[in-house]
Design a protein around this nucleic acid. Structure first.
Ligand SMILES: [Mn+2]
Ligand SMILES: [Mn+2]
Ligand SMILES: [Zn+2]
Ligand SMILES: [Zn+2]
Lengths: 144, 144
DNA sequence: ATTATATTGAAACTTATTCTCAATATTAAA
DNA sequence: TTTAATATTGAGAATAAGTTTCAATATAAT
């Protein structure tokens, strides 16, 4: 945990940026979230702890955390982005129920293999992916 | 071509809606597009033909064309949706260059198989998917 | 023709995200 | 430990995609 904070600080310094308490606070809060999160959720979590962090700072810090490889934008839903900490997990797919909005994730190595194969054959440099499957969850496909 | 127009009319009627020249005009324009398209592109194409169609009507017609199965939203880029006619093609993946914005598509039956397998195992009802792979195209990975 | 209802374009609205700016904080150097 | 250059902050303005509202008009059933 602390080593992640330290690595982030080094990343910030090495880019010629300044290490601020706001950036660290945002990082700590995100690392404590187990789930997917969006900017609003994160903002309210911080606010609930009497933090003065503004949404602008959250929006400014997220790209840095993506660049350092701690988080990824994993899907868009309801017109806004959702993120998650991807330090300990591979990219994976998200099944989104179009009726109730429930999101479930699944990981399959064959998908990652397929993408690596495509990368090798195509000459592209792959950075990340979104696989969003849209449909109805078991519950919603029942209720008419 | 004309049979698609006719099927669309029947779809509209059967839903208790009214068949209007605006809806037909939008459908004809979309069917003539070979590529991916977004609302702005479509609007300008129509405008260039002296059409009076508003963006509001385009935004209202797109969900109907998705529902009838003629088009799909295939990816989001630059903060807005991109669509394509999917009458003659399977869902497929889109590789998006994060630097120049180029989009290239690829189709692989193993991906579709994987998704069908997931559907069968999970109890979800699958409708469509987006697989967007983000990275650098062969050209952009060269230029620093 | 009449009439009920749906659709239209224009403009207002909503919402996510980015930008601007003046005040403040960080950092390296003196 | 001051100084000074530069980056960051929060607040609010700006932007842009998409949705909603509304009065005028068009559709289509009778
Ligand atoms: Mn996930
Ligand atoms: Mn495509
Ligand atoms: Zn559901
Ligand atoms: Zn490129």
């Amino acid at each position: 945990m602390e080593h992640l904070i330290e690595s982030f600080r080094q990343f910030i310094k090495q880019k010629g940026l300044k290490y601020t308490p706001e950036r660290e606070e945002i990082l700590r809060e995100i690392l404590a979230i187990e789930d997917h999160f969006d900017v609003e959720t994160l903002y309210l979590l911080l606010k609930g702890k009497n933090s003065k962090i503004s949404k602008a700072s959250i929006y400014r810090t997220i790209p840095l955390l993506i660049e350092v490889g701690y988080i990824q934008e994993v899907y868009k839903q309801g017109g806004h982005s959702h993120y998650e900490v991807t330090l300990y997990k591979q990219p994976h797919l998200h099944f989104i129920c179009m009726k109730c909005g429930q999101v479930r994730e699944a990981l399959d190595h064959r998908l990652n293999d397929l993408i690596k194969e495509f990368e090798a054959k195509s000459g592209y440099k792959f950075l990340t992916y979104h696989l969003e499957i849209f449909g109805l969850c078991p519950y919603c496909r029942e209720v008419k």
